[in-house]
Amino acid sequence: MMVSMTDYKTVPVITIDGPTASGKGTVAQRVAQALGWAMLDSGALYRLTALACRDAGVATTDEQSAARIAAGLDVRFEDGKVFLKGTEVSDAIRAESIGVQASQVATLGAVRQALLERQRAFRQPPGLVADGRDMGTVVFPEAPVKVFLVADVHARAQRRCKQLIDKGFPANLADLTRDLEERDARDRSRAHAPLVAAPDAVTIDSSNLSIEEAVNAVLDLWSGKGAQGA
């Protein structure tokens, strides 16, 4: 069901922003399931753009070409799977090399603008949980509940290492730690929509939290704030 522009902002949104491997994707998915809401994995759109650029032979520094690819992505999300031009790419977009390229294209203003309305179109009843890096600051600044999920870089590297190994990808903890530090620096210093907590976001450190504890912390915020003010 599509929502008119008049009703758009009446659909509640929980935004979960944070650095790579902070657990925001898993937490967002569990929160969305608990509430029966839709979920937006904004990072997947940037990974898809990076993958499509690679397949087309377009450099991640070619802003206008990358933006055209982002605007014309033939993408479908279905049953937890991701399809690009009809081909499932759920695992392909999670490769570490694509993650690095996604972080690079995400610094390009024209790419971010091309994907902005695509992201906002996910806002449908009964609600949306959106995870990314600028969900609460740029894409849904009026969201009633905003979370900034962080974790120690070493804890994040260990999580990423396990994720990659579980998916059958090679992984080196030292290399992952260095890559995460470089991505953090790039995401925080980029000119367009840098990684930063929204002024009204609640910061949750997941370094020593289980997934269930992090999920419950977000649900408690919604129960105490969003559900009353939505």
Rank of each mutant, 00 (worst) to 15 (best):
M1E: 07
M1Y: 10
M1V: 12
V3D: 11
D7V: 14
D7M: 02
Y8E: 15
T15I: 05
T15F: 07
G18K: 13
S22A: 15
G23F: 12
A28G: 12
Q29W: 02
Q33L: 04
L35R: 02
G36K: 01
W37L: 00
D41R: 08
G43Q: 07
G43A: 11
L45C: 08
Y46F: 09
A50Q: 12
D55T: 12
G57C: 02
G57A: 09
V58A: 05
T61I: 02
D62Y: 13
S65A: 13
S65F: 11
A66E: 00
A67F: 05
A67D: 07
I69W: 05
A70Y: 02
F77N: 08
G80F: 04
V82F: 07
F83M: 08
L84V: 09
K85L: 09
T87R: 14
V89M: 04
A102R: 00
S103Q: 03
V105N: 03
T107P: 03
T107R: 01
V111F: 06
Q113H: 04
Q113F: 09
R120W: 07
R120T: 01
Q124F: 07
P126F: 08
M135A: 03
V138H: 11
P141D: 01
E142T: 00
V145R: 04
V147H: 01
V147T: 09
V150D: 09
V153G: 15
H154P: 15
A155N: 14
R156N: 05
A157D: 11
C161A: 03
I165N: 00
D166E: 09
D166G: 03
F169Y: 09
A171E: 12
N172M: 08
D175H: 15
R178I: 05
D179E: 09
A185I: 01
R186Q: 08
R188Y: 08
S189H: 05
R190N: 04
A191M: 02
A191W: 01
A193M: 07
V196I: 06
D200H: 10
A201Y: 09
V202S: 10
T203F: 11
S206P: 07
S207H: 14
I211R: 15
E213A: 11
E213N: 12
E213K: 14
A217Y: 14
A217V: 14
V218Q: 12
A227K: 11
G229W: 13
